[in-house]
C-alpha cells in the first residue's frame, strides 16, 4: 500500500469519470470508461484486493466495455450530452 500511488490514481479516476461522462462521442466515452475501469482495478490491486482487481480487469475493462461498444455499434454513436 503506497499512499502516493493511491492518491494519484484516485485523482485520475475522478478525471476519467468526468471525461467519460462529458464526451459526446459514445464510443470515446466507453473507451474512457474502460480506462476508468482499468485505473480502478490498479487501485484495488494496490490496496491488496487482488481478486477484486482481477475480476474488475476481466469484467469492467473487458466485458463491460465490449458489450457497451457492441451496443453502441448496433444503435447510435452520437449523443447530445
Amino acid at each position: 500500500m503506497i499512499w502516493q500511488f493511491d492518491i494519484i490514481i484516485l485523482i485520475f479516476l475522478v478525471v476519467a469519470a468526468i471525461v467519460s461522462l462529458r464526451l459526446k462521442d459514445l464510443l470515446g466515452a466507453s473507451m474512457v470508461f474502460g480506462i476508468y475501469s482499468f485505473l480502478i482495478c490498479l487501485l484495488w490491486a494496490e490496496m491488496g484486493a487482488v481478486d477484486v482487481a482481477f475480476t474488475e480487469a476481466a469484467v469492467g475493462a473487458g466485458v463491460s466495455t465490449v458489450i457497451m461498444i457492441a451496443t453502441i455499434f448496433s444503435t447510435t454513436r452520437r449523443s447530445k450530452d
Partner: peptide, 25 residues
C-alpha cells in the same frame, strides 16, 4: 489455470469463466 488455481492464487471460477468467455468473444 485461473479456475483451477483459485485456491492458491487470485482467481477462481468467475474470473476464469470471464476469461474463457472473453476468448470466445
Amino acid at each position: 489455470y485461473v479456475v483451477a488455481h483459485g485456491h492458491h492464487s487470485p482467481g477462481g471460477g468467475f474470473q476464469g469463466g470471464v476469461m474463457l468467455g472473453a476468448s470466445y468473444i
